[in-house]
Computed example of a mutant assay.
Amino acid sequence: MALFLLILVVAAVAQVFLPWWCIVPVAFLLAMLVGRTGGKAFLAGFFGVGLGWLILAIWLNGQNNSVLARRVAELLPLSGSIALLLLVTLVVGGLIGGLAALSGCWLRQATWPLKPQASPAPTAEAT
């Protein structure tokens, strides 16, 4: 949950000042630092970036009364469906963020593996 929120907030702020692809190094670095497992890192990156893009797309769609979204949906094979365009936005952004976060987590696991936790010493039971 913490990684998801970090990716969502940092990627959204970074995209205000940097190009769209800044989400890749953001998700990669945050997952490398915070991610514990590949699956959780992928999901955090997927939903962190995907929801960020979806929220921005919905906001921008409301700003121009759906004119731009309808035209883009007509250009793509979406039959002019704005809902499908928003779904495509979520999936594309999510896959980019998820794969970047997964890569970051795997790099950390490959180079700096977590130390196994010490198991408690076995106790001898008196019989």
Score class of each variant (00 low, 15 high):
T123S: 13
R108W: 02
V88D: 08
W59D: 00
I82Y: 09
F42C: 07
F42A: 09
V49G: 05
N61K: 10
V9T: 14
G48H: 01
L90C: 02
L85S: 02
R70L: 11
V72H: 09
Q63K: 12
R36V: 14
R108G: 02
L90H: 01
V16W: 13
L90P: 03
F28Q: 05
W21Q: 04
L85D: 02
V26T: 14
V72K: 02
K40W: 08
F17I: 13
R71K: 13
E74N: 12
L68Q: 11
P19H: 04
L107S: 06
K40F: 01
Q109S: 14
V72T: 13
G35W: 01
I23A: 07
I55K: 07
V10G: 03
N61A: 13
A101T: 04
F47R: 00
W21L: 12
W106L: 15
L84M: 14
E125P: 03
A121V: 11
A110F: 09
L60R: 11
Q109L: 12
A57T: 02
K115A: 15
M1H: 11
I55G: 09
W21E: 00
L18D: 01
A121P: 03
G48Q: 05
A11N: 07
L60N: 13
A11I: 03
A69N: 06
A41D: 03
V67S: 11
A27R: 07
T127V: 13
G52H: 04
C105R: 15
W106C: 12
S103F: 12
I7D: 04
G35D: 01
V13S: 03
P19F: 02
G39Y: 07
L30D: 05
V13I: 15
S81E: 07
A83D: 12
L30C: 04
V72S: 06
V9H: 00
I58V: 15
G48L: 03
V34K: 10
W21K: 01
L90S: 06
W53N: 03
F42M: 06
